[in-house]
Deep mutational scan, measured.
Amino acid sequence: KLATQLLVDLAEGCHTHHFNSLLDIIEKVMARSLSPPPELEERDVAAYSASLEDVKTAVLGLLVILQTKLYTLPASHATRVYEMLVSHIQLHYKHSYTLPIASSIRLQAFDFLLLLRADSLHRLGLPNKDGVVRFSPYCVCDYMEPERGSEKKTSGPLSPPTGPPGPAPAGPAVRLGSVPYSLLFRVLLQCLKQESDWKVLKLVLGRLPESLRYKVLIFTSPCSVDQLCSALCSMLSGPKTLERLRGAPEGFSRTDLHLAVVPVLTALISYHNYLDKTKQREMVYCLEQGLIHRCASQCVVALSICSVEMPDIIIKALPVLVVKLTHISATASMAVPLLEFLSTLARLPHLYRNFAAEQYASVFAISLPYTNPSKFNQYIVCLAHHVIAMWFIRCRLPFRKDFVPFITKGLRSNVLLSFDDTPEKDSFRARSTSLNERPKSLRIARPPKQGLNNSPPVKEFKESSAAEAFRCRSISVSEHVVRSRIQTSLTSASLGSADENSVAQADDSLKN
């Protein structure tokens, strides 16, 4: 292990032709098999893994070397290190390495390699500790012929580059190093199909959405987006994914797998022009299946994007999809995704031109529960009313008269009656009930004795009459309010007539 670390330190600071010789020695160290011998017992696995620490030291050392060589000349050094790393990870899946030390190597290698970024000039870069990406002036992410390196360097940008540029090249004859992302992409596909350690798979799935944002990485080298989509959909639809995973937390289920895969599918929607129609349908189907899991909100957001990006695919699945959405409970976490999906859909009339009455009724059935102001915040309630109004205007004229009683009944049950079921009123009724029952229970537990009763009969009569009056008032709060309003209006009217009579009498006395 110490000798391997010494080789790594020497290679990191070497800029001459001896660098390749040092890498040859490190490569021989990495070539050791990580498969346990067949006769190895389970209690000896930890000791055997400790004997392979030099392999881990070599791989982690290459990660440090690549981070240094990416910004220094010659660029061919970075290319050689990158290829060695990718080849080593491929061996893991070729020979099915399952030892804990092998999983640790893959975890740290993917953690580093999935941080690679590219700008519009195809320059590769890595983020620093502050998250700012520094791009290399010597390494690009696409394949290029050595003699055409300078031509590639002087080509115009596709868009303004992001991030601070690296140091300027030493001279005009500098050759750019090619670090094609397709090599890593193929290893990522192998990981999605064969990885057995949940920690490694979770890391890859968590980092892929951010990497897919940099389309330069994908399009400048032959990366098959179709295969990526197929691998992701197979993970969700195939039963073998959960069987092969180990190291998963207790209670791990298909729902947890959906939570990890759906963000990658959402990021892949922007590549729909490069996906086969069959793959697009598979993607939409997987998102529909996710509606029954805890990732339902993410799936609804993804389907909203699909309705804009892939209208030809979503239009066929939309009638059944809208009916499925009615089975989702009206909760605060689902309110905004569902209502925004319906609001977006209302502005795309070509998608729902074939809707029948059942689909329009489903839209109103989804939106009406969110009009309850005692359960949802003001934004959700306003958005629900907006969706109902928009869809009522957009639905066909023959359907409107049939939906009017349905909508008014839903609004009455969710908006008007919600004020009668407020917690304050319920607590008031509970308190009044307890007050009504309390005197009775006290009389049963403690019967009054005439000799020891010091309270006069008049006081008892007053208290009983007050309790009886309170019971009468607490029967119905709404009736009490109505009666008080009527009494107030009658009182004001009587006072007004009394004032008029007094004024008339005063005038008569003055005349006399």
Rank of each mutant, 00 (worst) to 15 (best):
Q90N: 12
P127M: 07
G149E: 12
E210Q: 08
V64T: 13
N128T: 09
F135N: 03
T162W: 12
K240W: 09
C223T: 04
E195A: 00
T241G: 05
C233H: 04
E145N: 09
L66P: 00
E195R: 00
V64M: 11
M144W: 13
P209K: 12
G206R: 12
G238V: 06
F185P: 01
V64E: 15
S103E: 10
K199H: 14
M144D: 08
L245H: 02
L208V: 03
K193G: 10
S230K: 06
S237L: 12
S87C: 09
G247N: 11
R246V: 09
S178A: 14
T68R: 11
V216H: 06
D142A: 04
L85I: 14
P157N: 11
L201T: 01
I101H: 02
L212K: 00
L158E: 13
L203M: 12
C139N: 04
A75H: 07
L228K: 00
V132K: 14
I218N: 02
R175T: 14
G163N: 10
I65K: 01
A118K: 02
S51K: 09
L91T: 13
L217N: 04
I101F: 04
L228H: 00
V59Y: 06
L203C: 10
L73R: 12
G163E: 10
L189W: 02
K94I: 11
C141V: 06
A75V: 11
L176M: 09
S76E: 14
P74D: 04
C229Q: 03
K69N: 02
L63H: 06
A58K: 00
T241I: 12
M235Q: 01
Q67P: 04
E147M: 11
L115N: 15
K152I: 10
G163Q: 13
Q190F: 06
V187H: 01
T98Y: 07
P161W: 13
K202I: 02
H88K: 00
E147L: 07
L203F: 07
L158Q: 14
P249R: 07
L63G: 12
A75W: 07
C139A: 06
V204M: 01
C139I: 10
E53T: 05
E83C: 11
L158T: 10
K215Q: 06
K202G: 05
S76Q: 11
I101C: 06
L176R: 12
G61H: 01
L203R: 07
S224L: 04
H92D: 00
S211V: 14
D226P: 06
K193R: 08
D130V: 09
P74R: 02
T154C: 13
L208R: 00
Y143G: 07
S159K: 10
L212I: 04
Y93D: 00
S221F: 01
G251W: 04
D197I: 01
L236K: 00
C139L: 12
P249E: 10
H95R: 12
Q67D: 04
T98M: 08
A102D: 01
L158D: 11
R106L: 01
L212H: 00
A58P: 00
R246L: 06
L203E: 05
E210N: 07
L66S: 01
V59K: 01
R80G: 01
G238T: 14
C141A: 05
H77S: 04
P249A: 05
S155V: 10
L205Y: 00
L232C: 06
V86P: 00
L188W: 02
H92K: 00
P161M: 12
L242M: 08
W198E: 01
G163C: 11
L85K: 00
R213V: 03
D142H: 05
V200W: 00
S51Q: 12
Q194Y: 07
T162L: 10
V132C: 09
R246A: 12
V55H: 01
Y138N: 05
E195P: 00
Y82C: 02
A118D: 01
S136H: 01
E145I: 07
P100M: 03
R117W: 01
P100C: 03
V133W: 15
G61M: 00
R186A: 09
S96H: 10
T162S: 12
V216I: 07
L188F: 04
L217F: 07
S104N: 10
H95V: 05
S211K: 06
V204R: 00
L73A: 13
P127N: 04
S159P: 10
G177Y: 07
L116W: 04
L205C: 03
F185R: 01
S182R: 03
L189T: 06
R186D: 14
S49F: 03
G177L: 03
Y214V: 04
A248R: 10
V64L: 11
P165Y: 09
A78T: 05
V55G: 01
E53G: 09
L158Y: 12
K129E: 15
S234F: 05
L62I: 04
V187I: 13
V64C: 13
V132T: 10
R246G: 08
R244K: 08
K215P: 08
V225L: 12
I101W: 02
G163W: 11
D226E: 13
R213M: 09
